[in-house]
Design a protein around this nucleic acid. Structure first.
Lengths: 226, 226
DNA sequence: CCCAATATTACTGTATACAAAATATTGAGA
DNA sequence: TCTCAATATTTTGTATACAGTAATATTGGG
Protein backbone atom coordinates (compact mmCIF):
# COMPACT_ATOMS: atom_id res chain seq x y z
CA UNK A 1 0.00 0.00 0.00
CA UNK A 2 2.80 2.31 0.94
CA UNK A 3 4.73 2.76 -2.24
CA UNK A 4 6.19 6.25 -2.38
CA UNK A 5 9.78 5.12 -2.35
CA UNK A 6 11.11 8.60 -2.92
CA UNK A 7 12.25 9.78 0.46
CA UNK A 8 11.42 13.45 0.65
CA UNK A 9 11.75 15.65 3.67
CA UNK A 10 7.98 15.77 4.21
CA UNK A 11 7.76 12.04 4.64
CA UNK A 12 6.47 11.27 8.12
CA UNK A 13 8.98 9.69 10.45
CA UNK A 14 6.83 6.57 10.67
CA UNK A 15 7.46 6.01 6.96
CA UNK A 16 11.19 6.43 7.31
CA UNK A 17 11.21 4.08 10.28
CA UNK A 18 9.01 1.61 8.44
CA UNK A 19 11.29 1.54 5.41
CA UNK A 20 14.39 1.30 7.59
CA UNK A 21 13.09 -1.57 9.67
CA UNK A 22 11.73 -3.41 6.67
CA UNK A 23 15.05 -3.19 4.93
CA UNK A 24 16.82 -4.45 8.05
CA UNK A 25 14.51 -7.42 8.30
CA UNK A 26 14.73 -8.32 4.63
CA UNK A 27 18.50 -7.92 4.60
CA UNK A 28 18.70 -10.25 7.57
CA UNK A 29 20.18 -7.67 9.93
CA UNK A 30 17.20 -8.28 12.17
CA UNK A 31 16.89 -12.03 12.51
CA UNK A 32 13.68 -14.04 12.66
CA UNK A 33 12.48 -14.28 16.24
CA UNK A 34 14.44 -11.23 17.32
CA UNK A 35 12.49 -8.83 19.49
CA UNK A 36 11.89 -5.29 18.31
CA UNK A 37 12.24 -3.23 21.43
CA UNK A 38 10.74 0.18 21.08
CA UNK A 39 13.01 2.19 23.28
CA UNK A 40 16.24 0.83 21.91
CA UNK A 41 15.01 1.21 18.34
CA UNK A 42 13.91 4.74 19.16
CA UNK A 43 17.33 5.55 20.56
CA UNK A 44 19.12 3.91 17.68
CA UNK A 45 17.09 5.81 15.08
CA UNK A 46 17.00 9.03 17.05
CA UNK A 47 13.22 9.33 17.22
CA UNK A 48 10.60 8.77 19.88
CA UNK A 49 8.61 5.62 20.46
CA UNK A 50 5.55 6.93 18.64
CA UNK A 51 6.78 6.61 15.05
CA UNK A 52 8.43 3.30 15.97
CA UNK A 53 5.13 1.91 17.15
CA UNK A 54 3.30 3.09 14.07
CA UNK A 55 5.94 1.55 11.83
CA UNK A 56 5.57 -1.71 13.73
CA UNK A 57 1.83 -1.65 13.06
CA UNK A 58 2.60 -1.42 9.34
CA UNK A 59 5.19 -4.18 9.46
CA UNK A 60 2.75 -6.32 11.39
CA UNK A 61 0.18 -5.91 8.67
CA UNK A 62 2.76 -6.79 6.05
CA UNK A 63 3.50 -9.99 7.92
CA UNK A 64 7.15 -9.20 8.59
CA UNK A 65 6.68 -8.95 12.34
CA UNK A 66 4.32 -10.71 14.69
CA UNK A 67 2.97 -9.37 17.93
CA UNK A 68 3.23 -11.43 21.07
CA UNK A 69 0.54 -10.29 23.49
CA UNK A 70 2.11 -7.94 26.02
CA UNK A 71 5.56 -8.88 24.74
CA UNK A 72 5.67 -6.53 21.80
CA UNK A 73 6.89 -7.24 18.31
CA UNK A 74 9.32 -9.78 17.01
CA UNK A 75 10.57 -10.51 13.52
CA UNK A 76 8.34 -13.14 11.96
CA UNK A 77 9.79 -16.60 11.62
CA UNK A 78 8.90 -17.99 8.26
CA UNK A 79 8.26 -21.71 8.22
CA UNK A 80 8.63 -24.03 5.25
CA UNK A 81 4.86 -24.39 5.30
CA UNK A 82 4.35 -20.63 5.12
CA UNK A 83 6.89 -20.28 2.36
CA UNK A 84 5.10 -22.88 0.28
CA UNK A 85 1.77 -21.23 1.04
CA UNK A 86 3.16 -17.97 -0.30
CA UNK A 87 4.57 -19.69 -3.37
CA UNK A 88 1.25 -21.38 -4.09
CA UNK A 89 -0.52 -18.03 -4.07
CA UNK A 90 2.26 -16.35 -6.00
CA UNK A 91 2.12 -18.95 -8.74
CA UNK A 92 -1.56 -18.30 -9.22
CA UNK A 93 -1.17 -14.53 -9.24
CA UNK A 94 1.96 -14.47 -11.38
CA UNK A 95 0.00 -16.49 -13.91
CA UNK A 96 -2.85 -14.00 -13.78
CA UNK A 97 -0.36 -11.16 -14.11
CA UNK A 98 1.37 -12.52 -17.17
CA UNK A 99 -1.97 -13.28 -18.80
CA UNK A 100 -3.20 -9.76 -18.26
CA UNK A 101 0.16 -8.33 -19.23
CA UNK A 102 -0.10 -10.16 -22.56
CA UNK A 103 -3.47 -8.53 -23.09
CA UNK A 104 -2.73 -5.08 -21.84
CA UNK A 105 0.92 -4.17 -22.12
CA UNK A 106 1.53 -1.10 -24.26
CA UNK A 107 4.55 -0.64 -26.49
CA UNK A 108 5.96 1.61 -23.81
CA UNK A 109 5.51 -1.08 -21.15
CA UNK A 110 7.26 -3.57 -23.39
CA UNK A 111 10.13 -1.19 -24.01
CA UNK A 112 10.52 -0.75 -20.25
CA UNK A 113 10.54 -4.52 -19.83
CA UNK A 114 13.29 -4.86 -22.43
CA UNK A 115 15.34 -2.17 -20.73
CA UNK A 116 14.93 -3.87 -17.36
CA UNK A 117 16.05 -7.17 -18.83
CA UNK A 118 19.10 -5.56 -20.42
CA UNK A 119 20.05 -4.04 -17.08
CA UNK A 120 19.68 -7.38 -15.32
CA UNK A 121 21.73 -9.13 -18.00
CA UNK A 122 24.48 -6.58 -17.61
CA UNK A 123 24.63 -7.15 -13.86
CA UNK A 124 24.79 -10.91 -14.33
CA UNK A 125 27.66 -10.49 -16.80
CA UNK A 126 29.51 -8.21 -14.41
CA UNK A 127 31.40 -10.48 -12.04
CA UNK A 128 31.53 -8.08 -9.13
CA UNK A 129 27.96 -6.86 -8.97
CA UNK A 130 26.52 -7.58 -5.56
CA UNK A 131 23.51 -9.67 -4.70
CA UNK A 132 21.42 -6.76 -3.56
CA UNK A 133 21.85 -5.07 -6.92
CA UNK A 134 20.95 -8.27 -8.72
CA UNK A 135 17.87 -8.77 -6.60
CA UNK A 136 16.79 -5.18 -7.26
CA UNK A 137 17.25 -5.65 -10.99
CA UNK A 138 15.26 -8.87 -11.00
CA UNK A 139 12.52 -7.14 -9.04
CA UNK A 140 12.57 -4.27 -11.54
CA UNK A 141 12.10 -6.68 -14.44
CA UNK A 142 9.13 -8.39 -12.88
CA UNK A 143 7.70 -5.05 -11.87
CA UNK A 144 7.49 -4.01 -15.49
CA UNK A 145 5.27 -7.04 -16.08
CA UNK A 146 3.14 -6.22 -13.06
CA UNK A 147 2.75 -2.65 -14.28
CA UNK A 148 1.62 -4.05 -17.60
CA UNK A 149 -1.41 -5.67 -15.96
CA UNK A 150 -2.90 -2.23 -15.21
CA UNK A 151 -4.34 -3.80 -12.07
CA UNK A 152 -3.18 -1.85 -9.05
CA UNK A 153 -4.43 -4.35 -6.52
CA UNK A 154 -2.66 -7.18 -8.27
CA UNK A 155 0.53 -5.13 -8.40
CA UNK A 156 0.28 -4.42 -4.70
CA UNK A 157 -0.38 -8.00 -3.62
CA UNK A 158 2.37 -9.43 -5.78
CA UNK A 159 4.85 -6.87 -4.48
CA UNK A 160 3.88 -7.84 -0.95
CA UNK A 161 4.22 -11.57 -1.55
CA UNK A 162 7.61 -10.98 -3.10
CA UNK A 163 8.73 -9.14 0.03
CA UNK A 164 7.95 -12.19 2.11
CA UNK A 165 10.50 -14.16 0.17
CA UNK A 166 13.28 -11.63 -0.16
CA UNK A 167 15.75 -13.52 1.99
CA UNK A 168 15.32 -16.68 -0.03
CA UNK A 169 15.51 -14.96 -3.38
CA UNK A 170 18.87 -13.60 -2.31
CA UNK A 171 19.85 -17.13 -1.46
CA UNK A 172 19.22 -18.60 -4.87
CA UNK A 173 20.73 -15.62 -6.66
CA UNK A 174 24.05 -16.67 -5.14
CA UNK A 175 24.19 -19.52 -7.63
CA UNK A 176 25.84 -18.36 -10.88
CA UNK A 177 24.09 -21.00 -12.94
CA UNK A 178 20.77 -19.86 -11.53
CA UNK A 179 21.55 -16.32 -12.60
CA UNK A 180 22.26 -17.16 -16.21
CA UNK A 181 19.22 -19.40 -16.41
CA UNK A 182 17.20 -16.43 -15.13
CA UNK A 183 18.43 -14.38 -18.07
CA UNK A 184 17.28 -17.05 -20.48
CA UNK A 185 13.92 -17.26 -18.77
CA UNK A 186 13.47 -13.49 -18.85
CA UNK A 187 14.13 -13.47 -22.59
CA UNK A 188 11.60 -16.23 -23.17
CA UNK A 189 9.03 -14.23 -21.23
CA UNK A 190 9.71 -11.11 -23.27
CA UNK A 191 9.30 -13.00 -26.49
CA UNK A 192 6.05 -14.58 -25.38
CA UNK A 193 4.61 -11.26 -24.23
CA UNK A 194 5.69 -9.46 -27.40
CA UNK A 195 3.92 -11.99 -29.58
CA UNK A 196 0.95 -11.87 -27.18
CA UNK A 197 1.29 -15.60 -26.77
CA UNK A 198 -0.49 -16.04 -23.47
CA UNK A 199 -0.10 -19.81 -23.26
CA UNK A 200 3.61 -19.60 -23.87
CA UNK A 201 3.99 -16.77 -21.37
CA UNK A 202 2.13 -18.68 -18.69
CA UNK A 203 4.31 -21.67 -19.36
CA UNK A 204 7.45 -19.56 -18.93
CA UNK A 205 6.37 -17.95 -15.70
CA UNK A 206 5.13 -21.23 -14.22
CA UNK A 207 8.43 -22.84 -15.01
CA UNK A 208 10.30 -19.97 -13.42
CA UNK A 209 8.34 -20.17 -10.20
CA UNK A 210 8.67 -23.94 -10.01
CA UNK A 211 12.36 -23.37 -10.53
CA UNK A 212 12.41 -20.90 -7.67
CA UNK A 213 10.37 -23.18 -5.47
CA UNK A 214 12.77 -26.06 -5.92
CA UNK A 215 15.78 -23.85 -5.34
CA UNK A 216 14.32 -22.27 -2.24
CA UNK A 217 13.21 -25.54 -0.73
CA UNK A 218 16.60 -27.05 -1.45
CA UNK A 219 18.31 -24.08 0.18
CA UNK A 220 16.11 -24.46 3.23
CA UNK A 221 16.72 -28.16 3.49
CA UNK A 222 20.43 -27.46 3.26
CA UNK A 223 20.54 -24.85 5.99
CA UNK A 224 17.82 -26.73 7.92
CA UNK A 225 16.36 -23.34 8.57
CA UNK A 226 12.86 -23.58 9.97
CA UNK B 1 -3.21 -10.51 9.27
CA UNK B 2 -5.19 -9.59 12.33
CA UNK B 3 -7.67 -12.39 12.66
CA UNK B 4 -8.33 -13.06 16.30
CA UNK B 5 -11.97 -12.12 16.13
CA UNK B 6 -12.71 -13.14 19.67
CA UNK B 7 -12.79 -9.93 21.62
CA UNK B 8 -11.28 -10.74 24.98
CA UNK B 9 -10.48 -8.26 27.66
CA UNK B 10 -6.75 -8.47 27.00
CA UNK B 11 -7.11 -7.33 23.43
CA UNK B 12 -5.18 -4.09 23.00
CA UNK B 13 -7.31 -1.02 22.47
CA UNK B 14 -5.82 -0.55 19.02
CA UNK B 15 -7.43 -3.85 18.00
CA UNK B 16 -10.79 -2.87 19.37
CA UNK B 17 -10.58 0.50 17.65
CA UNK B 18 -9.41 -1.14 14.44
CA UNK B 19 -12.31 -3.58 14.39
CA UNK B 20 -14.77 -0.84 15.30
CA UNK B 21 -13.62 1.55 12.62
CA UNK B 22 -13.41 -1.17 10.02
CA UNK B 23 -16.95 -2.25 10.74
CA UNK B 24 -18.13 1.36 10.53
CA UNK B 25 -16.48 1.81 7.16
CA UNK B 26 -17.76 -1.46 5.75
CA UNK B 27 -21.26 -0.85 7.03
CA UNK B 28 -21.22 2.54 5.39
CA UNK B 29 -21.52 4.52 8.62
CA UNK B 30 -18.29 6.24 7.70
CA UNK B 31 -18.66 7.33 4.12
CA UNK B 32 -15.98 7.30 1.43
CA UNK B 33 -14.03 10.54 1.52
CA UNK B 34 -15.01 11.27 5.11
CA UNK B 35 -12.16 12.41 7.29
CA UNK B 36 -11.16 10.38 10.32
CA UNK B 37 -10.32 12.97 12.91
CA UNK B 38 -8.31 11.59 15.73
CA UNK B 39 -9.54 13.70 18.60
CA UNK B 40 -13.22 13.30 17.84
CA UNK B 41 -12.84 9.57 17.28
CA UNK B 42 -10.90 9.34 20.51
CA UNK B 43 -13.65 11.14 22.38
CA UNK B 44 -16.37 9.10 20.73
CA UNK B 45 -14.70 5.79 21.58
CA UNK B 46 -13.49 6.93 24.98
CA UNK B 47 -9.80 6.31 24.36
CA UNK B 48 -6.78 8.49 23.68
CA UNK B 49 -5.36 9.35 20.28
CA UNK B 50 -2.62 6.74 20.48
CA UNK B 51 -4.72 3.63 19.82
CA UNK B 52 -6.73 5.57 17.24
CA UNK B 53 -3.57 6.37 15.32
CA UNK B 54 -2.34 2.79 15.46
CA UNK B 55 -5.69 1.52 14.23
CA UNK B 56 -5.52 4.00 11.36
CA UNK B 57 -2.12 2.62 10.39
CA UNK B 58 -3.70 -0.83 10.15
CA UNK B 59 -6.68 0.41 8.16
CA UNK B 60 -4.31 2.25 5.87
CA UNK B 61 -2.44 -0.93 5.16
CA UNK B 62 -5.70 -2.73 4.50
CA UNK B 63 -6.60 -0.08 1.96
CA UNK B 64 -9.75 1.08 3.72
CA UNK B 65 -8.35 4.51 4.50
CA UNK B 66 -5.89 6.71 2.66
CA UNK B 67 -3.57 9.25 4.20
CA UNK B 68 -3.47 12.79 2.88
CA UNK B 69 -0.11 14.33 3.78
CA UNK B 70 -0.59 16.52 6.83
CA UNK B 71 -4.34 16.15 6.53
CA UNK B 72 -4.67 12.82 8.24
CA UNK B 73 -6.79 9.88 7.22
CA UNK B 74 -9.92 9.66 5.17
CA UNK B 75 -12.11 6.74 4.18
CA UNK B 76 -10.90 5.38 0.84
CA UNK B 77 -13.11 6.03 -2.13
CA UNK B 78 -13.48 2.87 -4.13
CA UNK B 79 -13.70 3.39 -7.87
CA UNK B 80 -15.26 1.07 -10.42
CA UNK B 81 -11.76 0.41 -11.70
CA UNK B 82 -10.54 -0.64 -8.26
CA UNK B 83 -13.56 -2.84 -7.72
CA UNK B 84 -12.93 -4.65 -10.96
CA UNK B 85 -9.26 -4.97 -10.09
CA UNK B 86 -10.23 -6.66 -6.85
CA UNK B 87 -12.68 -8.94 -8.62
CA UNK B 88 -10.05 -9.94 -11.16
CA UNK B 89 -7.68 -10.99 -8.40
CA UNK B 90 -10.45 -12.63 -6.42
CA UNK B 91 -11.51 -14.73 -9.37
CA UNK B 92 -8.00 -16.07 -9.71
CA UNK B 93 -7.62 -16.79 -6.02
CA UNK B 94 -11.10 -18.23 -5.54
CA UNK B 95 -10.27 -20.61 -8.35
CA UNK B 96 -7.05 -21.59 -6.64
CA UNK B 97 -8.91 -21.99 -3.36
CA UNK B 98 -11.57 -24.28 -4.72
CA UNK B 99 -8.95 -26.36 -6.51
CA UNK B 100 -6.95 -26.83 -3.36
CA UNK B 101 -10.09 -27.38 -1.33
CA UNK B 102 -11.01 -30.22 -3.67
CA UNK B 103 -7.62 -31.75 -3.00
CA UNK B 104 -7.33 -31.12 0.69
CA UNK B 105 -10.70 -30.85 2.39
CA UNK B 106 -11.17 -33.40 5.13
CA UNK B 107 -14.50 -35.03 5.96
CA UNK B 108 -14.72 -32.66 8.87
CA UNK B 109 -14.19 -29.64 6.61
CA UNK B 110 -16.90 -30.91 4.30
CA UNK B 111 -19.29 -31.42 7.18
CA UNK B 112 -18.66 -27.83 8.28
CA UNK B 113 -19.32 -26.65 4.75
CA UNK B 114 -22.64 -28.49 4.67
CA UNK B 115 -23.63 -27.01 8.01
CA UNK B 116 -22.75 -23.51 6.81
CA UNK B 117 -24.84 -24.02 3.70
CA UNK B 118 -27.81 -25.26 5.74
CA UNK B 119 -27.56 -22.18 7.94
CA UNK B 120 -27.47 -19.88 4.94
CA UNK B 121 -30.41 -21.65 3.35
CA UNK B 122 -32.42 -21.27 6.53
CA UNK B 123 -31.76 -17.54 6.60
CA UNK B 124 -32.78 -17.17 2.97
CA UNK B 125 -36.00 -19.05 3.69
CA UNK B 126 -36.72 -16.85 6.70
CA UNK B 127 -38.39 -13.74 5.36
CA UNK B 128 -37.33 -11.41 8.14
CA UNK B 129 -33.66 -12.23 8.47
CA UNK B 130 -31.60 -9.12 7.95
CA UNK B 131 -28.94 -8.46 5.37
CA UNK B 132 -26.08 -8.41 7.83
CA UNK B 133 -26.99 -11.89 9.01
CA UNK B 134 -27.22 -13.11 5.45
CA UNK B 135 -23.88 -11.61 4.54
CA UNK B 136 -22.28 -13.21 7.59
CA UNK B 137 -23.73 -16.58 6.68
CA UNK B 138 -22.49 -16.33 3.11
CA UNK B 139 -19.08 -15.38 4.40
CA UNK B 140 -19.16 -18.35 6.77
CA UNK B 141 -19.91 -20.71 3.91
CA UNK B 142 -17.05 -19.48 1.79
CA UNK B 143 -14.77 -19.49 4.80
CA UNK B 144 -15.25 -23.22 5.18
CA UNK B 145 -13.91 -23.59 1.65
CA UNK B 146 -10.98 -21.32 2.38
CA UNK B 147 -10.19 -23.29 5.51
CA UNK B 148 -10.20 -26.40 3.39
CA UNK B 149 -7.27 -25.11 1.37
CA UNK B 150 -4.97 -25.40 4.41
CA UNK B 151 -3.15 -22.38 3.03
CA UNK B 152 -3.12 -19.64 5.66
CA UNK B 153 -1.81 -16.97 3.36
CA UNK B 154 -4.50 -17.69 0.81
CA UNK B 155 -7.14 -17.60 3.52
CA UNK B 156 -5.85 -14.25 4.72
CA UNK B 157 -5.68 -12.60 1.31
CA UNK B 158 -9.11 -13.83 0.28
CA UNK B 159 -10.63 -12.59 3.53
CA UNK B 160 -9.03 -9.22 2.92
CA UNK B 161 -10.26 -8.96 -0.66
CA UNK B 162 -13.73 -9.86 0.48
CA UNK B 163 -13.66 -7.04 3.03
CA UNK B 164 -13.00 -4.57 0.25
CA UNK B 165 -16.30 -5.47 -1.33
CA UNK B 166 -18.51 -5.73 1.71
CA UNK B 167 -20.69 -2.76 0.82
CA UNK B 168 -21.43 -4.17 -2.61
CA UNK B 169 -22.09 -7.70 -1.43
CA UNK B 170 -24.74 -6.28 0.86
CA UNK B 171 -26.18 -4.53 -2.16
CA UNK B 172 -26.69 -7.63 -4.25
CA UNK B 173 -27.98 -9.66 -1.31
CA UNK B 174 -30.98 -7.32 -1.30
CA UNK B 175 -32.29 -9.08 -4.36
CA UNK B 176 -34.43 -12.09 -3.36
CA UNK B 177 -33.80 -13.88 -6.63
CA UNK B 178 -30.08 -13.44 -6.14
CA UNK B 179 -30.35 -15.05 -2.72
CA UNK B 180 -32.08 -18.19 -3.92
CA UNK B 181 -29.70 -18.51 -6.82
CA UNK B 182 -26.87 -18.32 -4.29
CA UNK B 183 -28.33 -21.30 -2.48
CA UNK B 184 -28.39 -23.29 -5.71
CA UNK B 185 -24.81 -22.29 -6.46
CA UNK B 186 -23.65 -23.26 -2.98
CA UNK B 187 -25.19 -26.69 -3.38
CA UNK B 188 -23.49 -27.19 -6.72
CA UNK B 189 -20.18 -26.27 -5.13
CA UNK B 190 -20.70 -28.73 -2.30
CA UNK B 191 -21.49 -31.51 -4.70
CA UNK B 192 -18.44 -30.78 -6.83
CA UNK B 193 -16.12 -30.65 -3.84
CA UNK B 194 -17.55 -33.84 -2.35
CA UNK B 195 -16.92 -35.78 -5.53
CA UNK B 196 -13.50 -34.08 -5.76
CA UNK B 197 -14.47 -32.86 -9.20
CA UNK B 198 -12.05 -29.97 -9.54
CA UNK B 199 -13.13 -28.89 -13.01
CA UNK B 200 -16.75 -28.77 -12.01
CA UNK B 201 -15.95 -26.89 -8.81
CA UNK B 202 -13.90 -24.29 -10.66
CA UNK B 203 -16.74 -23.86 -13.10
CA UNK B 204 -19.19 -23.25 -10.26
CA UNK B 205 -17.05 -20.74 -8.48
CA UNK B 206 -16.18 -18.89 -11.67
CA UNK B 207 -19.81 -18.62 -12.53
CA UNK B 208 -20.63 -17.33 -9.08
CA UNK B 209 -18.02 -14.62 -9.25
CA UNK B 210 -19.05 -13.57 -12.74
CA UNK B 211 -22.56 -13.42 -11.37
CA UNK B 212 -21.40 -11.20 -8.54
CA UNK B 213 -19.38 -9.03 -10.86
CA UNK B 214 -22.35 -8.37 -13.12
CA UNK B 215 -24.61 -7.65 -10.15
CA UNK B 216 -22.14 -5.33 -8.53
CA UNK B 217 -21.38 -3.44 -11.70
CA UNK B 218 -25.08 -3.09 -12.38
CA UNK B 219 -25.68 -1.80 -8.88
CA UNK B 220 -22.90 0.72 -9.31
CA UNK B 221 -24.19 1.89 -12.67
CA UNK B 222 -27.61 2.30 -11.09
CA UNK B 223 -26.50 4.39 -8.15
CA UNK B 224 -23.85 6.09 -10.32
CA UNK B 225 -21.60 5.68 -7.31
CA UNK B 226 -18.02 6.45 -8.13
C1' DC C 1 -20.56 44.74 -0.12
C1' DC C 2 -16.40 42.18 -1.68
C1' DC C 3 -11.84 40.79 -1.36
C1' DA C 4 -7.26 40.38 0.46
C1' DA C 5 -4.15 40.24 4.40
C1' DT C 6 -3.75 38.73 8.88
C1' DA C 7 -5.11 36.40 13.17
C1' DT C 8 -7.05 32.35 15.09
C1' DT C 9 -8.21 27.75 15.37
C1' DA C 10 -7.88 22.99 14.73
C1' DC C 11 -5.45 19.24 13.55
C1' DT C 12 -1.65 16.31 12.66
C1' DG C 13 3.00 14.64 13.82
C1' DT C 14 6.12 13.78 17.44
C1' DA C 15 7.76 13.47 22.15
C1' DT C 16 7.20 12.37 26.79
C1' DA C 17 4.89 10.69 31.02
C1' DC C 18 2.63 7.18 33.65
C1' DA C 19 0.58 2.69 34.90
C1' DA C 20 0.33 -2.18 34.64
C1' DA C 21 2.29 -6.41 33.33
C1' DA C 22 6.03 -9.44 32.37
C1' DT C 23 10.64 -10.73 33.30
C1' DA C 24 14.89 -10.78 35.80
C1' DT C 25 17.23 -10.55 40.20
C1' DT C 26 18.14 -11.19 44.77
C1' DG C 27 18.19 -13.35 49.06
C1' DA C 28 16.45 -16.34 52.69
C1' DG C 29 15.55 -20.92 54.02
C1' DA C 30 16.00 -25.92 53.29
C1' DT D 1 23.91 -25.49 46.62
C1' DC D 2 19.20 -25.34 45.12
C1' DT D 3 14.40 -23.57 45.36
C1' DC D 4 11.09 -20.35 45.74
C1' DA D 5 9.16 -16.05 46.92
C1' DA D 6 9.66 -11.11 47.29
C1' DT D 7 11.45 -7.22 44.98
C1' DA D 8 13.48 -4.54 41.20
C1' DT D 9 13.75 -3.66 36.39
C1' DT D 10 12.25 -3.59 31.89
C1' DT D 11 8.88 -3.05 28.53
C1' DT D 12 4.61 -2.55 26.69
C1' DG D 13 0.10 -0.09 26.33
C1' DT D 14 -2.11 4.16 26.92
C1' DA D 15 -2.61 9.06 27.88
C1' DT D 16 -1.17 13.62 27.52
C1' DA D 17 1.70 17.60 26.14
C1' DC D 18 3.82 20.44 22.73
C1' DA D 19 5.16 22.28 18.19
C1' DG D 20 4.37 23.27 13.54
C1' DT D 21 1.26 23.66 9.69
C1' DA D 22 -2.87 23.86 7.07
C1' DA D 23 -7.53 25.48 7.14
C1' DT D 24 -10.74 28.89 8.67
C1' DA D 25 -12.38 33.12 10.55
C1' DT D 26 -11.79 37.96 11.07
C1' DT D 27 -10.85 42.43 10.08
C1' DG D 28 -9.91 46.43 7.38
C1' DG D 29 -9.44 48.71 2.93
C1' DG D 30 -11.36 49.57 -1.45
Amino acid sequence: MVNTNEINEFMPLREVVFLTLRKSILRGELLPGERLMEISLANKLGVSRTPIREAIRMLEHEGLVVMKPRRGAQVAKITVQELNDVLEVRKSLETLAILKACERMTEENIAAMRRAEKAFEALVADKDSDLTELAEADVAFHDTIYQGTKNRRLIQILANLREQMYRFRIEYLKDAEMRSSLVTEHKAIIEAVCSRDADKAVECITEQIDHQQRAINASIEATSEV
